[in-house]
Amino acid sequence: MEPFKLIRAQDNLQAIHSAGIKQSKFIAGGTNMLDLMKLNIETPRQVVDINKLSLYKIEEMPDEGVRIGALVKNSDLSYNPFIKTHFPMLSEALLSGASPQLRNMASTGGNLMQRTRCPYFYNTDFACNKRLPGSGCAAINGYNRMNAVLGTSDQCIATHPSDMCVALAALGAIIYVQGAKGIRTIPFADFHLLPAQTPHLEHNLRQGELITHIEIPALPFAAKSHYLKVRDRASYEFALTSAAVALDVQNGIIRQARIALGGVGTKPWRSLDAEKALIGASATESTYKRAADLALATANPYKDNAFKVELAKRTLVRALKTVEGLS
């Protein structure tokens, strides 16, 4: 690890000011940041500890939306009664991620910002455009079983690893950020970036901008929702594929739907095409299969991860059937 100066910020403005300079990074739970610093993948000269900021609240909005402070721990968010009732897919997604210890440390903001688990990104002996722009991508012709099939480019095929973000993508969350110039909001779909020709650019935050809150707008039918995660071992493992699903079914007809996929995309992957195919159709397995085909229609598999295309479809169909069965 490279030496760094640790600054314990006492309020938002101090944090933003301290992090305004290049080579300065926030640290919240530390579960991703410190991991990467130990491997010299992140080498900040200044680390701004934001744990003393007052961003620990979960506020229920009068219209049944919710505002979640950026420092709320993944464990607190997952067990929050309001979240469990109104947005069960978010609770399930959080509980499927990492371990209880890590969830006690990991923050909402940090989870949003966590970096890929691509093995070549993690190993500084290999070429990686995300870690070292222009060095190449060892995964495209390497062992790419865990890599993405959607949203890839010829520069990077890394998956976004977060479970929480898949649920937030489906729920259409809004991210509140504060910077030296004030507060702005970013729709979830615009927060993470596709790799394209610049895989080292992963999100829409500017230097020094602090995530303060995440808002989930009211979505009554998300009370019937589900997150299904498929992985190599039963727990404490990243997704091979996952699906976050909410359905509003009335008299056998799907009125509203939300669909997002994990483990397959270079960013948390909401599928508007799949949602469109569901809305107005009858709630049957053939409808679900058609939606799943559409969700994966643009998939571009590589040597070791072609299985993910079929697995993702089956994951989505199973999740849809589970939600249909909830009443």
């Binding site: 640290i27 991991d35 680390v47 500890d49 744990n51 371990s99 210890q101 890590l102 006690n104």
Partner: peptide, 24 residues
């Protein structure tokens, strides 16, 4: 953060001490 051998309680909650800076 991958094994749990370093688990301690911080303010009553279990955490991985290997991914926590002492300074935090």
């Amino acid at each position: 953060g991958q094994c749990g051998a370093c688990t301690v309680l911080a303010d009553g909650r279990r955490i991985n001490s290997c991914l926590t800076l002492a300074g935090m």
